[in-house]
């Protein structure tokens, strides 16, 4: 079986952190590891859509939470799939380590969110860490 890594990210859109989460997830899924990852769509998982449940059962999962309400983790728990979560990134908490980052509501309603160069660097850094985890999970699975 070809092992992929499931990525499930906060899908909120009322907080700037959710937009950051979404951008990081896209970077990983579409740019950095498109062949090694699958998106597990959170609303679809909650609504029992077969494909997303199957991904959650079959693959190790990396969760990217937008805030401390940790909705992704809770939904995986509810679906009895939390045992497959291997890494959790909480953007709200990670941002605290970078006090110079400017997070504003301009991230919310635009065709393309306006991202400062500092924020871009932060997102790249987190995306690269997630990529390391993906590579590690695939290496372990193929041992």
């Amino acid at each position: 079986m070809v092992i992929k890594v499931g990525i499930s990210a906060c899908t909120g859109f009322d907080y700037p952190e959710a937009s950051i989460t979404r951008i990081i997830a896209y970077k990983v899924l579409e740019e950095l590891r498109p062949d090694e990852t699958v998106l597990i769509c959170l609303p679809a998982l909650a609504a029992d859509v077969e494909e997303d449940i199957e991904f959650g059962e079959k693959y190790p999962v990396i969760v990217i939470e937008g805030c401390n309400k940790i909705c992704c983790t809770k939904i995986f728990e509810e679906k009895k799939l939390a045992h497959n979560i291997k890494y959790v990134y909480n953007i709200h908490e990670l941002i605290k380590e970078y006090p110079d980052l400017q997070i504003s509501s301009s991230l919310l309603l635009t065709s393309k969110p306006q991202v400062s160069s500092n924020l871009e660097k932060f997102m790249d850094k987190i995306a690269k860490k997630i990529v390391q985890d993906i590579d590690q999970l695939i290496k372990e699975a193929n041992k």
């Binding site: 899908t11 909120g12 859109f13 609303p43 309400k69 909705c71 992704c72 809770k74 939904i75 309603l109």
Partner: peptide, 26 residues
């Protein structure tokens, strides 16, 4: 934000689905 700001409110779907006060959910 623009068309009906006084009459509407967004409900966060992931929070809604995570639910349950005992789990600090929506």
């Amino acid at each position: 934000e623009k068309l009906r700001p006084d009459n509407t409110i967004i409900l966060c779907q992931p929070l809604f689905m995570a639910g349950g006060l005992e789990r600090h959910g929506g």
